[in-house]
Amino acid sequence: MKKIIGQLKPYVPEEPAESVKARLGVDRLVRLSANENPYGTSPKVREAVLDYVVNNDANLYPDGNASALRAKLANYWTVEENQLVIGVGLDEVISMVNKTFINTGDSIVISVPAFSEYGLNGLVEGAVIREVPCIEATGQYDFGAMRKAVDDTTRIVWICNPNNPTGTYESVEDIHKFIGTLPDNVLVIIDEAYIDFVTSVAVPTARVLLDEFPNVCIMRTFSKAYGLANYRVGYMMSSAELANYIQTIRLPYNLNTLSQVAAEAAFEDQEFLRATVRQNAVERDLWEQTLDEVKATYYKSGANFIFMSVPNVEALADEWLAKGYQVRRGQRENWLRVTLPPADDGVIMRSVLKDYMARQ
Rank of each mutant, 00 (worst) to 15 (best):
Q83M: 03
M357D: 01
S33K: 13
L286D: 11
V338Q: 07
A296E: 01
L291Y: 04
E264L: 15
D106V: 07
L187V: 00
T153K: 15
P13H: 10
I249R: 03
N334I: 01
R207E: 13
D63P: 08
N215M: 02
T205M: 09
T168F: 01
R350K: 11
Q83C: 03
K99I: 02
G64Y: 02
N256W: 03
K323I: 07
A58L: 13
G180S: 04
T205H: 02
F101S: 05
L251D: 12
I108P: 03
I195S: 04
I195A: 04
D152M: 11
G87I: 00
F272A: 01
N161G: 00
V338W: 05
A68C: 14
D184Q: 07
A58I: 14
F178E: 00
P16K: 11
D191H: 03
A358T: 05
N163Q: 10
V233D: 01
D211H: 09
A193H: 13
G346A: 09
I102Q: 02
A243Q: 11
I348P: 11
E92R: 08
V208I: 15
K300V: 10
L340H: 06
A229D: 09
G119H: 06
Q331G: 12
D91E: 15
I94E: 05
Y169E: 08
D292E: 04
L73F: 06
R278T: 14
S111H: 02
I5H: 15
P342Y: 02
V282D: 11
N59V: 14
A71F: 14
E283N: 15
V198R: 08
P43Y: 07
A48R: 03
G330D: 03
V12K: 12
T199N: 13
A229P: 10
G105P: 11
A275L: 14
T168D: 04
A17Y: 03
A240L: 05
L73V: 09
Y118T: 04
V186I: 00
G105K: 08
W77G: 09
W335Y: 07
L255R: 02
V85P: 03
M96N: 06
A202M: 11
N75E: 15
G302C: 11
G126N: 04
D106H: 09
P311M: 04
Y118A: 01
Y194A: 11
E319T: 10
A34H: 15
Q140A: 12
G302Y: 11
Y39R: 13
Y52Q: 03
D345I: 06
